[in-house]
Write a protein that binds this DNA or RNA. Structure first.
Lengths: 250, 250
DNA sequence: GAAATAGTGTCTGTGAGACACTATTAG
DNA sequence: CTAATAGTGTCTCACAGACACTATTTC
Protein backbone atom coordinates (compact mmCIF):
# COMPACT_ATOMS: atom_id res chain seq x y z
CA UNK A 1 0.00 0.00 0.00
CA UNK A 2 2.94 2.35 0.45
CA UNK A 3 4.17 4.17 -2.61
CA UNK A 4 6.90 6.74 -2.89
CA UNK A 5 6.25 9.70 -0.63
CA UNK A 6 4.72 12.93 -1.83
CA UNK A 7 3.84 11.70 -5.29
CA UNK A 8 0.90 13.64 -6.72
CA UNK A 9 -2.40 11.89 -7.25
CA UNK A 10 -2.29 12.42 -11.00
CA UNK A 11 1.20 10.96 -11.19
CA UNK A 12 0.03 8.01 -9.16
CA UNK A 13 -2.90 7.45 -11.49
CA UNK A 14 -0.65 7.76 -14.52
CA UNK A 15 1.53 5.01 -13.16
CA UNK A 16 -1.33 2.82 -11.94
CA UNK A 17 -2.09 -0.27 -13.96
CA UNK A 18 -4.69 -2.60 -12.53
CA UNK A 19 -3.30 -5.47 -14.56
CA UNK A 20 -0.37 -5.59 -12.16
CA UNK A 21 -2.62 -6.86 -9.38
CA UNK A 22 -4.44 -10.17 -9.29
CA UNK A 23 -8.15 -9.45 -9.33
CA UNK A 24 -11.21 -11.65 -8.94
CA UNK A 25 -13.33 -12.50 -11.95
CA UNK A 26 -16.46 -10.36 -11.84
CA UNK A 27 -19.81 -11.51 -13.15
CA UNK A 28 -23.45 -10.67 -12.74
CA UNK A 29 -26.16 -13.32 -12.60
CA UNK A 30 -29.83 -12.55 -13.01
CA UNK A 31 -32.61 -14.56 -11.42
CA UNK A 32 -35.57 -13.84 -13.66
CA UNK A 33 -38.85 -14.81 -12.00
CA UNK A 34 -42.21 -15.23 -13.63
CA UNK A 35 -45.36 -17.13 -12.77
CA UNK A 36 -46.28 -19.75 -15.35
CA UNK A 37 -48.93 -22.47 -15.06
CA UNK A 38 -49.58 -21.76 -11.41
CA UNK A 39 -45.93 -22.08 -10.44
CA UNK A 40 -43.02 -19.77 -9.74
CA UNK A 41 -40.52 -20.14 -12.58
CA UNK A 42 -36.95 -19.04 -13.24
CA UNK A 43 -35.32 -18.52 -16.58
CA UNK A 44 -32.34 -20.78 -17.25
CA UNK A 45 -29.89 -20.97 -20.14
CA UNK A 46 -27.83 -23.93 -21.22
CA UNK A 47 -24.14 -23.10 -21.08
CA UNK A 48 -22.66 -23.15 -24.56
CA UNK A 49 -19.00 -22.88 -23.56
CA UNK A 50 -16.57 -23.95 -20.90
CA UNK A 51 -16.55 -24.22 -18.01
CA UNK A 52 -19.59 -26.26 -16.93
CA UNK A 53 -20.45 -26.59 -20.61
CA UNK A 54 -23.89 -28.07 -21.24
CA UNK A 55 -25.23 -27.43 -17.77
CA UNK A 56 -28.20 -25.21 -17.04
CA UNK A 57 -27.31 -21.91 -15.44
CA UNK A 58 -28.73 -18.53 -14.51
CA UNK A 59 -28.34 -15.96 -17.29
CA UNK A 60 -25.23 -14.00 -16.49
CA UNK A 61 -21.74 -13.27 -17.52
CA UNK A 62 -18.75 -11.03 -17.09
CA UNK A 63 -19.18 -7.38 -16.36
CA UNK A 64 -17.95 -5.52 -19.42
CA UNK A 65 -16.15 -2.44 -18.22
CA UNK A 66 -16.29 -0.78 -21.63
CA UNK A 67 -19.97 -1.37 -22.11
CA UNK A 68 -21.73 -1.53 -18.76
CA UNK A 69 -22.26 1.80 -17.09
CA UNK A 70 -22.80 0.17 -13.72
CA UNK A 71 -23.82 -3.13 -12.16
CA UNK A 72 -27.48 -2.59 -12.80
CA UNK A 73 -26.77 -1.91 -16.46
CA UNK A 74 -24.86 -5.17 -16.69
CA UNK A 75 -27.80 -7.09 -15.23
CA UNK A 76 -30.27 -5.26 -17.47
CA UNK A 77 -28.19 -6.01 -20.55
CA UNK A 78 -28.33 -9.70 -19.77
CA UNK A 79 -32.04 -9.58 -19.00
CA UNK A 80 -32.83 -7.74 -22.21
CA UNK A 81 -30.74 -10.19 -24.17
CA UNK A 82 -32.72 -13.16 -22.89
CA UNK A 83 -36.22 -11.75 -22.67
CA UNK A 84 -36.41 -8.44 -24.48
CA UNK A 85 -37.93 -6.95 -21.33
CA UNK A 86 -36.82 -3.35 -20.83
CA UNK A 87 -38.34 -2.20 -17.55
CA UNK A 88 -38.62 -5.00 -15.06
CA UNK A 89 -38.58 -4.77 -11.30
CA UNK A 90 -34.89 -5.25 -10.46
CA UNK A 91 -33.41 -5.82 -7.03
CA UNK A 92 -29.89 -6.66 -6.03
CA UNK A 93 -29.98 -9.76 -3.86
CA UNK A 94 -26.44 -10.48 -2.70
CA UNK A 95 -22.87 -10.91 -3.86
CA UNK A 96 -21.06 -14.22 -3.61
CA UNK A 97 -17.32 -14.44 -3.95
CA UNK A 98 -14.69 -17.03 -3.08
CA UNK A 99 -11.88 -19.07 -4.57
CA UNK A 100 -13.93 -22.22 -5.16
CA UNK A 101 -17.04 -21.30 -7.07
CA UNK A 102 -15.46 -21.06 -10.51
CA UNK A 103 -12.64 -23.27 -11.77
CA UNK A 104 -11.08 -20.28 -13.53
CA UNK A 105 -10.10 -18.67 -10.25
CA UNK A 106 -11.31 -16.48 -7.39
CA UNK A 107 -14.59 -15.19 -8.68
CA UNK A 108 -17.36 -12.94 -7.53
CA UNK A 109 -20.90 -12.60 -8.77
CA UNK A 110 -23.52 -9.97 -8.08
CA UNK A 111 -26.91 -11.66 -7.97
CA UNK A 112 -29.88 -9.58 -9.07
CA UNK A 113 -33.47 -10.69 -9.24
CA UNK A 114 -35.94 -9.50 -11.84
CA UNK A 115 -39.70 -9.87 -11.69
CA UNK A 116 -41.48 -9.95 -15.02
CA UNK A 117 -44.76 -10.96 -16.51
CA UNK A 118 -44.09 -14.19 -18.36
CA UNK A 119 -46.23 -13.11 -21.32
CA UNK A 120 -44.06 -10.05 -21.89
CA UNK A 121 -40.91 -12.12 -22.33
CA UNK A 122 -39.83 -12.54 -25.90
CA UNK A 123 -37.61 -15.54 -26.10
CA UNK A 124 -36.16 -15.44 -29.56
CA UNK A 125 -34.75 -11.95 -29.22
CA UNK A 126 -31.28 -13.08 -28.17
CA UNK A 127 -28.47 -13.04 -30.69
CA UNK A 128 -26.76 -15.90 -28.95
CA UNK A 129 -28.16 -19.17 -30.18
CA UNK A 130 -28.42 -20.90 -26.87
CA UNK A 131 -31.12 -23.00 -25.36
CA UNK A 132 -33.32 -21.13 -22.95
CA UNK A 133 -36.11 -22.45 -20.76
CA UNK A 134 -38.37 -21.66 -17.89
CA UNK A 135 -38.05 -24.01 -14.96
CA UNK A 136 -40.35 -24.24 -11.96
CA UNK A 137 -38.36 -23.23 -8.90
CA UNK A 138 -39.54 -26.42 -7.19
CA UNK A 139 -37.84 -28.54 -9.83
CA UNK A 140 -34.56 -26.68 -10.19
CA UNK A 141 -32.96 -28.96 -7.63
CA UNK A 142 -33.25 -31.84 -10.14
CA UNK A 143 -31.22 -29.98 -12.75
CA UNK A 144 -27.90 -29.63 -10.90
CA UNK A 145 -27.24 -26.10 -12.04
CA UNK A 146 -23.80 -24.92 -13.08
CA UNK A 147 -21.31 -23.45 -10.60
CA UNK A 148 -22.99 -22.52 -7.30
CA UNK A 149 -26.10 -21.28 -9.07
CA UNK A 150 -28.34 -23.46 -6.91
CA UNK A 151 -27.15 -21.39 -3.95
CA UNK A 152 -27.66 -18.11 -5.79
CA UNK A 153 -31.15 -19.13 -6.81
CA UNK A 154 -31.93 -20.21 -3.27
CA UNK A 155 -30.90 -16.77 -1.98
CA UNK A 156 -33.12 -15.02 -4.51
CA UNK A 157 -36.10 -17.24 -3.76
CA UNK A 158 -35.68 -16.62 -0.05
CA UNK A 159 -35.50 -12.89 -0.59
CA UNK A 160 -38.59 -12.92 -2.78
CA UNK A 161 -40.63 -15.05 -0.38
CA UNK A 162 -39.56 -12.98 2.62
CA UNK A 163 -40.53 -9.71 0.96
CA UNK A 164 -43.90 -10.96 -0.19
CA UNK A 165 -44.81 -11.24 3.49
CA UNK A 166 -44.59 -7.48 3.99
CA UNK A 167 -44.63 -5.87 0.53
CA UNK A 168 -46.70 -6.08 -2.64
CA UNK A 169 -43.81 -7.26 -4.82
CA UNK A 170 -45.92 -9.73 -6.84
CA UNK A 171 -47.61 -6.83 -8.63
CA UNK A 172 -44.48 -6.85 -10.80
CA UNK A 173 -45.21 -10.41 -11.89
CA UNK A 174 -48.58 -9.32 -13.32
CA UNK A 175 -49.52 -8.15 -16.82
CA UNK A 176 -50.71 -4.58 -17.47
CA UNK A 177 -54.22 -5.28 -16.24
CA UNK A 178 -55.33 -7.95 -13.81
CA UNK A 179 -58.04 -8.77 -11.30
CA UNK A 180 -57.63 -8.94 -7.54
CA UNK A 181 -58.31 -12.67 -7.63
CA UNK A 182 -55.52 -13.16 -10.13
CA UNK A 183 -53.16 -11.12 -7.98
CA UNK A 184 -54.14 -13.09 -4.91
CA UNK A 185 -53.43 -16.32 -6.78
CA UNK A 186 -49.92 -15.08 -7.62
CA UNK A 187 -49.31 -14.20 -3.98
CA UNK A 188 -50.39 -17.72 -3.05
CA UNK A 189 -48.12 -19.28 -5.64
CA UNK A 190 -45.09 -17.36 -4.45
CA UNK A 191 -45.81 -17.97 -0.78
CA UNK A 192 -46.81 -21.58 -1.26
CA UNK A 193 -49.88 -21.21 0.92
CA UNK A 194 -53.43 -19.93 0.90
CA UNK A 195 -54.23 -16.31 1.68
CA UNK A 196 -57.53 -15.06 3.08
CA UNK A 197 -59.52 -13.26 0.43
CA UNK A 198 -61.08 -10.56 2.59
CA UNK A 199 -57.86 -9.65 4.42
CA UNK A 200 -55.94 -9.70 1.19
CA UNK A 201 -58.31 -7.28 -0.51
CA UNK A 202 -58.41 -5.00 2.51
CA UNK A 203 -54.62 -4.92 2.63
CA UNK A 204 -54.24 -4.13 -1.05
CA UNK A 205 -57.05 -1.59 -1.09
CA UNK A 206 -55.69 0.36 1.85
CA UNK A 207 -52.19 0.48 0.38
CA UNK A 208 -53.53 2.48 -2.60
CA UNK A 209 -51.05 0.91 -4.98
CA UNK A 210 -53.64 -0.19 -7.53
CA UNK A 211 -56.29 1.68 -9.44
CA UNK A 212 -59.41 0.24 -10.99
CA UNK A 213 -59.49 0.62 -14.76
CA UNK A 214 -62.89 2.26 -15.30
CA UNK A 215 -65.33 0.00 -17.01
CA UNK A 216 -62.85 -2.76 -17.70
CA UNK A 217 -63.91 -6.19 -16.53
CA UNK A 218 -62.64 -9.72 -16.86
CA UNK A 219 -65.58 -11.80 -18.04
CA UNK A 220 -66.17 -15.50 -17.53
CA UNK A 221 -69.07 -17.73 -16.78
CA UNK A 222 -69.62 -15.85 -13.57
CA UNK A 223 -69.69 -12.37 -12.12
CA UNK A 224 -67.23 -10.17 -14.06
CA UNK A 225 -64.19 -8.99 -12.12
CA UNK A 226 -62.86 -5.45 -12.00
CA UNK A 227 -59.51 -5.00 -13.75
CA UNK A 228 -56.77 -3.06 -12.00
CA UNK A 229 -53.44 -1.57 -12.95
CA UNK A 230 -50.47 -0.52 -10.83
CA UNK A 231 -50.54 3.16 -9.90
CA UNK A 232 -47.53 4.82 -11.50
CA UNK A 233 -44.87 6.18 -9.21
CA UNK A 234 -45.73 3.73 -6.45
CA UNK A 235 -42.43 2.72 -4.92
CA UNK A 236 -42.40 -0.60 -3.14
CA UNK A 237 -45.10 -0.42 -0.50
CA UNK A 238 -44.20 -1.71 2.97
CA UNK A 239 -47.00 -3.05 5.12
CA UNK A 240 -46.70 -2.56 8.88
CA UNK A 241 -47.41 -6.23 9.54
CA UNK A 242 -46.42 -9.44 7.86
CA UNK A 243 -48.92 -11.94 6.57
CA UNK A 244 -48.75 -14.50 9.32
CA UNK A 245 -50.50 -17.44 7.73
CA UNK A 246 -52.47 -19.33 10.43
CA UNK A 247 -52.24 -18.03 13.96
CA UNK A 248 -48.98 -16.96 15.47
CA UNK A 249 -46.57 -18.24 12.86
CA UNK A 250 -43.11 -16.80 13.32
CA UNK B 1 -17.75 -16.51 -25.68
CA UNK B 2 -17.17 -19.05 -28.48
CA UNK B 3 -14.01 -21.09 -28.26
CA UNK B 4 -12.83 -23.82 -30.59
CA UNK B 5 -15.37 -26.62 -30.74
CA UNK B 6 -15.07 -29.76 -28.66
CA UNK B 7 -12.15 -28.60 -26.57
CA UNK B 8 -12.12 -30.33 -23.21
CA UNK B 9 -12.84 -28.35 -20.07
CA UNK B 10 -9.42 -29.04 -18.64
CA UNK B 11 -7.73 -27.86 -21.84
CA UNK B 12 -9.85 -24.74 -21.72
CA UNK B 13 -8.86 -24.05 -18.14
CA UNK B 14 -5.22 -24.66 -18.95
CA UNK B 15 -5.37 -22.04 -21.63
CA UNK B 16 -7.50 -19.59 -19.65
CA UNK B 17 -5.71 -16.54 -18.29
CA UNK B 18 -7.93 -13.97 -16.60
CA UNK B 19 -5.29 -11.28 -17.18
CA UNK B 20 -6.30 -11.27 -20.83
CA UNK B 21 -9.65 -9.70 -19.95
CA UNK B 22 -10.23 -6.27 -18.47
CA UNK B 23 -11.73 -6.71 -15.05
CA UNK B 24 -13.14 -4.27 -12.51
CA UNK B 25 -11.20 -3.40 -9.39
CA UNK B 26 -12.71 -5.30 -6.48
CA UNK B 27 -12.76 -3.99 -2.94
CA UNK B 28 -14.67 -4.55 0.27
CA UNK B 29 -15.69 -1.71 2.56
CA UNK B 30 -16.84 -2.23 6.11
CA UNK B 31 -19.28 0.04 7.90
CA UNK B 32 -18.47 -0.59 11.56
CA UNK B 33 -21.23 0.68 13.82
CA UNK B 34 -21.07 1.25 17.56
CA UNK B 35 -22.99 3.39 20.00
CA UNK B 36 -20.83 5.96 21.77
CA UNK B 37 -21.96 8.85 23.95
CA UNK B 38 -25.61 8.37 23.10
CA UNK B 39 -24.98 8.49 19.35
CA UNK B 40 -24.62 6.01 16.50
CA UNK B 41 -21.00 6.08 15.37
CA UNK B 42 -19.04 4.70 12.41
CA UNK B 43 -15.37 3.92 12.31
CA UNK B 44 -13.39 5.93 9.75
CA UNK B 45 -9.75 5.79 8.70
CA UNK B 46 -7.72 8.55 7.11
CA UNK B 47 -6.43 7.45 3.73
CA UNK B 48 -2.64 7.23 3.77
CA UNK B 49 -2.11 6.75 0.03
CA UNK B 50 -3.48 7.78 -3.32
CA UNK B 51 -6.07 8.18 -4.51
CA UNK B 52 -8.14 10.49 -2.28
CA UNK B 53 -5.11 10.70 0.00
CA UNK B 54 -5.79 12.37 3.33
CA UNK B 55 -9.56 12.02 3.17
CA UNK B 56 -11.59 10.05 5.70
CA UNK B 57 -12.95 6.78 4.39
CA UNK B 58 -14.61 3.57 5.46
CA UNK B 59 -12.10 0.85 6.33
CA UNK B 60 -11.72 -1.29 3.26
CA UNK B 61 -9.42 -2.31 0.51
CA UNK B 62 -8.79 -4.72 -2.29
CA UNK B 63 -9.89 -8.31 -2.04
CA UNK B 64 -6.72 -10.39 -1.83
CA UNK B 65 -7.31 -13.52 -3.81
CA UNK B 66 -4.37 -15.32 -2.22
CA UNK B 67 -5.36 -14.49 1.31
CA UNK B 68 -9.12 -14.06 1.54
CA UNK B 69 -11.09 -17.27 1.50
CA UNK B 70 -14.27 -15.43 0.57
CA UNK B 71 -15.88 -12.00 0.70
CA UNK B 72 -16.81 -12.30 4.34
CA UNK B 73 -13.23 -13.21 5.21
CA UNK B 74 -12.02 -10.10 3.40
CA UNK B 75 -14.41 -7.92 5.41
CA UNK B 76 -13.47 -9.68 8.66
CA UNK B 77 -9.77 -9.23 7.97
CA UNK B 78 -10.28 -5.52 7.62
CA UNK B 79 -12.47 -5.31 10.71
CA UNK B 80 -9.97 -7.26 12.80
CA UNK B 81 -7.18 -5.05 11.57
CA UNK B 82 -8.94 -1.90 12.75
CA UNK B 83 -10.65 -3.05 15.91
CA UNK B 84 -9.30 -6.44 16.97
CA UNK B 85 -12.92 -7.65 17.13
CA UNK B 86 -13.17 -11.29 16.07
CA UNK B 87 -16.86 -12.19 16.17
CA UNK B 88 -19.06 -9.26 15.30
CA UNK B 89 -22.47 -9.31 13.75
CA UNK B 90 -21.74 -9.04 10.02
CA UNK B 91 -24.23 -8.42 7.25
CA UNK B 92 -23.66 -7.77 3.59
CA UNK B 93 -25.46 -4.56 2.65
CA UNK B 94 -25.05 -4.05 -1.07
CA UNK B 95 -22.53 -3.93 -3.88
CA UNK B 96 -21.78 -0.76 -5.78
CA UNK B 97 -19.97 -0.82 -9.07
CA UNK B 98 -19.51 1.61 -11.92
CA UNK B 99 -16.88 3.38 -13.97
CA UNK B 100 -16.94 6.62 -12.02
CA UNK B 101 -16.49 5.86 -8.36
CA UNK B 102 -12.74 5.33 -8.41
CA UNK B 103 -10.29 7.26 -10.59
CA UNK B 104 -8.26 4.11 -11.18
CA UNK B 105 -11.00 2.57 -13.29
CA UNK B 106 -14.27 0.63 -13.26
CA UNK B 107 -14.49 -0.48 -9.67
CA UNK B 108 -16.84 -2.46 -7.52
CA UNK B 109 -17.12 -2.61 -3.76
CA UNK B 110 -19.01 -5.00 -1.55
CA UNK B 111 -20.34 -3.09 1.43
CA UNK B 112 -20.69 -5.00 4.69
CA UNK B 113 -21.88 -3.65 7.98
CA UNK B 114 -20.60 -4.79 11.35
CA UNK B 115 -22.24 -4.16 14.69
CA UNK B 116 -19.92 -4.13 17.68
CA UNK B 117 -19.79 -2.99 21.25
CA UNK B 118 -17.60 0.11 21.25
CA UNK B 119 -15.85 -0.97 24.46
CA UNK B 120 -14.66 -4.20 22.82
CA UNK B 121 -12.84 -2.37 20.04
CA UNK B 122 -9.11 -2.18 20.51
CA UNK B 123 -7.83 0.66 18.42
CA UNK B 124 -4.08 0.31 18.51
CA UNK B 125 -4.08 -3.26 17.24
CA UNK B 126 -3.55 -2.34 13.59
CA UNK B 127 -0.13 -2.73 12.03
CA UNK B 128 -0.83 0.06 9.63
CA UNK B 129 -0.05 3.37 11.26
CA UNK B 130 -3.03 5.28 10.09
CA UNK B 131 -5.34 7.64 11.82
CA UNK B 132 -8.56 6.07 12.96
CA UNK B 133 -11.58 7.68 14.55
CA UNK B 134 -15.17 7.20 15.49
CA UNK B 135 -17.55 9.66 13.92
CA UNK B 136 -21.18 10.19 14.79
CA UNK B 137 -23.25 9.20 11.77
CA UNK B 138 -25.05 12.53 12.01
CA UNK B 139 -21.81 14.41 11.43
CA UNK B 140 -20.30 12.31 8.68
CA UNK B 141 -21.84 14.59 6.06
CA UNK B 142 -19.45 17.35 7.21
CA UNK B 143 -16.39 15.23 6.50
CA UNK B 144 -16.75 14.75 2.73
CA UNK B 145 -15.71 11.12 2.74
CA UNK B 146 -13.45 9.65 0.07
CA UNK B 147 -14.82 8.14 -3.13
CA UNK B 148 -18.57 7.49 -2.88
CA UNK B 149 -18.31 6.39 0.72
CA UNK B 150 -21.02 8.81 1.79
CA UNK B 151 -23.38 6.83 -0.40
CA UNK B 152 -22.15 3.50 0.95
CA UNK B 153 -22.55 4.71 4.50
CA UNK B 154 -26.03 6.00 3.74
CA UNK B 155 -27.04 2.58 2.42
CA UNK B 156 -25.74 0.85 5.56
CA UNK B 157 -27.49 3.31 7.88
CA UNK B 158 -30.74 2.84 5.99
CA UNK B 159 -30.44 -0.92 6.22
CA UNK B 160 -29.69 -0.78 9.94
CA UNK B 161 -32.55 1.60 10.72
CA UNK B 162 -35.00 -0.39 8.62
CA UNK B 163 -34.10 -3.67 10.31
CA UNK B 164 -34.33 -2.24 13.80
CA UNK B 165 -38.04 -1.73 13.13
CA UNK B 166 -38.68 -5.46 12.88
CA UNK B 167 -35.67 -7.24 14.41
CA UNK B 168 -33.60 -7.04 17.58
CA UNK B 169 -30.35 -6.18 15.76
CA UNK B 170 -29.20 -3.67 18.40
CA UNK B 171 -28.43 -6.52 20.81
CA UNK B 172 -25.19 -6.81 18.82
CA UNK B 173 -24.24 -3.28 19.80
CA UNK B 174 -24.37 -4.19 23.49
CA UNK B 175 -21.65 -5.49 25.83
CA UNK B 176 -21.80 -9.00 27.33
CA UNK B 177 -24.30 -7.98 30.01
CA UNK B 178 -26.76 -5.14 29.92
CA UNK B 179 -30.09 -4.01 31.31
CA UNK B 180 -33.33 -3.68 29.41
CA UNK B 181 -33.26 0.08 29.91
CA UNK B 182 -29.80 0.25 28.36
CA UNK B 183 -30.97 -1.84 25.42
CA UNK B 184 -34.02 0.35 24.98
CA UNK B 185 -31.78 3.42 24.97
CA UNK B 186 -29.70 1.92 22.15
CA UNK B 187 -32.84 1.17 20.15
CA UNK B 188 -33.86 4.79 20.61
CA UNK B 189 -30.47 6.07 19.51
CA UNK B 190 -30.46 4.01 16.35
CA UNK B 191 -34.06 4.85 15.50
CA UNK B 192 -33.76 8.50 16.47
CA UNK B 193 -37.03 8.45 18.38
CA UNK B 194 -38.52 7.40 21.68
CA UNK B 195 -39.83 3.89 22.24
CA UNK B 196 -42.55 2.95 24.74
CA UNK B 197 -41.06 1.16 27.71
CA UNK B 198 -43.87 -1.31 28.37
CA UNK B 199 -44.30 -2.36 24.72
CA UNK B 200 -40.56 -2.61 24.27
CA UNK B 201 -40.16 -4.94 27.24
CA UNK B 202 -43.12 -7.05 26.21
CA UNK B 203 -41.71 -7.40 22.69
CA UNK B 204 -38.24 -8.38 23.87
CA UNK B 205 -39.54 -10.73 26.57
CA UNK B 206 -41.82 -12.62 24.22
CA UNK B 207 -39.08 -13.03 21.62
CA UNK B 208 -37.04 -15.08 24.13
CA UNK B 209 -33.76 -13.81 22.77
CA UNK B 210 -32.37 -12.67 26.12
CA UNK B 211 -31.86 -14.46 29.39
CA UNK B 212 -31.59 -12.88 32.83
CA UNK B 213 -28.21 -13.44 34.44
CA UNK B 214 -29.22 -14.87 37.81
CA UNK B 215 -28.48 -12.56 40.69
CA UNK B 216 -26.64 -10.00 38.57
CA UNK B 217 -27.89 -6.45 38.92
CA UNK B 218 -26.81 -3.05 37.72
CA UNK B 219 -26.78 -0.84 40.83
CA UNK B 220 -27.21 2.89 41.02
CA UNK B 221 -28.93 5.35 43.27
CA UNK B 222 -32.22 3.70 42.49
CA UNK B 223 -33.81 0.32 42.12
CA UNK B 224 -31.21 -2.13 40.76
CA UNK B 225 -31.82 -3.41 37.24
CA UNK B 226 -31.65 -7.02 36.13
CA UNK B 227 -28.72 -7.79 33.81
CA UNK B 228 -29.35 -9.83 30.68
CA UNK B 229 -27.25 -11.58 28.08
CA UNK B 230 -28.06 -12.73 24.57
CA UNK B 231 -29.22 -16.36 24.42
CA UNK B 232 -26.65 -18.27 22.38
CA UNK B 233 -27.77 -19.71 19.09
CA UNK B 234 -30.44 -17.10 18.64
CA UNK B 235 -30.46 -16.26 14.97
CA UNK B 236 -31.83 -12.87 14.06
CA UNK B 237 -35.34 -12.71 15.45
CA UNK B 238 -38.02 -11.31 13.19
CA UNK B 239 -41.02 -9.67 14.79
CA UNK B 240 -44.36 -9.99 12.99
CA UNK B 241 -45.02 -6.27 13.31
CA UNK B 242 -42.85 -3.22 12.95
CA UNK B 243 -42.45 -0.60 15.60
CA UNK B 244 -44.70 2.08 14.22
CA UNK B 245 -43.80 5.04 16.37
CA UNK B 246 -46.81 7.27 17.01
CA UNK B 247 -50.10 6.18 15.51
CA UNK B 248 -50.33 5.06 11.93
CA UNK B 249 -46.86 5.92 10.71
CA UNK B 250 -46.05 4.22 7.45
C1' DG C 1 -83.44 -21.80 -11.54
C1' DA C 2 -77.91 -23.69 -10.64
C1' DA C 3 -73.02 -22.95 -10.86
C1' DA C 4 -69.31 -20.12 -10.36
C1' DT C 5 -66.57 -16.56 -9.10
C1' DA C 6 -66.53 -11.46 -7.29
C1' DG C 7 -66.80 -8.89 -3.56
C1' DT C 8 -68.40 -7.40 1.52
C1' DG C 9 -69.59 -7.38 6.69
C1' DT C 10 -68.18 -8.35 10.87
C1' DC C 11 -66.23 -10.89 14.68
C1' DT C 12 -61.95 -12.56 16.94
C1' DG C 13 -57.14 -12.46 18.09
C1' DT C 14 -52.59 -10.43 18.48
C1' DG C 15 -49.45 -7.23 19.56
C1' DA C 16 -48.11 -2.08 19.51
C1' DG C 17 -49.03 2.56 21.80
C1' DA C 18 -50.30 5.12 25.83
C1' DC C 19 -50.00 5.97 30.39
C1' DA C 20 -50.72 5.36 35.08
C1' DC C 21 -49.44 2.55 38.50
C1' DT C 22 -46.29 -0.14 41.85
C1' DA C 23 -41.35 -1.70 43.39
C1' DT C 24 -36.80 -1.13 45.14
C1' DT C 25 -32.75 1.01 45.75
C1' DA C 26 -29.55 5.28 47.71
C1' DG C 27 -29.26 8.98 50.53
C1' DC D 1 -39.14 10.81 53.89
C1' DT D 2 -37.55 12.11 48.52
C1' DA D 3 -35.45 11.21 44.13
C1' DA D 4 -34.65 8.17 40.67
C1' DT D 5 -34.97 4.49 37.81
C1' DA D 6 -36.99 -0.52 37.31
C1' DG D 7 -40.68 -2.87 36.15
C1' DT D 8 -46.09 -4.00 35.62
C1' DG D 9 -51.32 -3.69 34.57
C1' DT D 10 -54.45 -2.63 31.51
C1' DC D 11 -56.98 0.01 28.07
C1' DT D 12 -57.19 1.33 23.25
C1' DC D 13 -56.31 0.81 18.48
C1' DA D 14 -54.84 -1.18 14.00
C1' DC D 15 -54.82 -4.79 11.22
C1' DA D 16 -54.54 -10.03 10.02
C1' DG D 17 -57.44 -14.31 10.11
C1' DA D 18 -61.82 -16.59 9.79
C1' DC D 19 -65.93 -17.26 7.69
C1' DA D 20 -70.46 -16.41 6.40
C1' DC D 21 -72.85 -13.58 3.71
C1' DT D 22 -74.46 -10.95 -0.67
C1' DA D 23 -73.79 -9.72 -5.80
C1' DT D 24 -73.55 -10.53 -10.62
C1' DT D 25 -72.59 -12.99 -14.39
C1' DT D 26 -73.35 -17.44 -17.85
C1' DC D 27 -75.83 -21.30 -18.93
Amino acid sequence: MEESQDESESAYLQRYDSRNYPSPLVTVDVVIFAVIDDALNVLLVKRGGHPEKGKWALPGGFVRVEEDRDLEAAALRRLRQETGVETPYLEQVATFGDGQRDARGWSLTVVTMALIDAASANFSSGETVQETRWSAVEHCADLTLAFDHARLLEAAVQRLRAKVEYTALPIHLMPEAFTLSELQRVFEIVLGRRVEKASFRRRIREASILEAIPGEKRRGSNRPAQLYRVVEGEGAHFFPRTLTGRRGAS
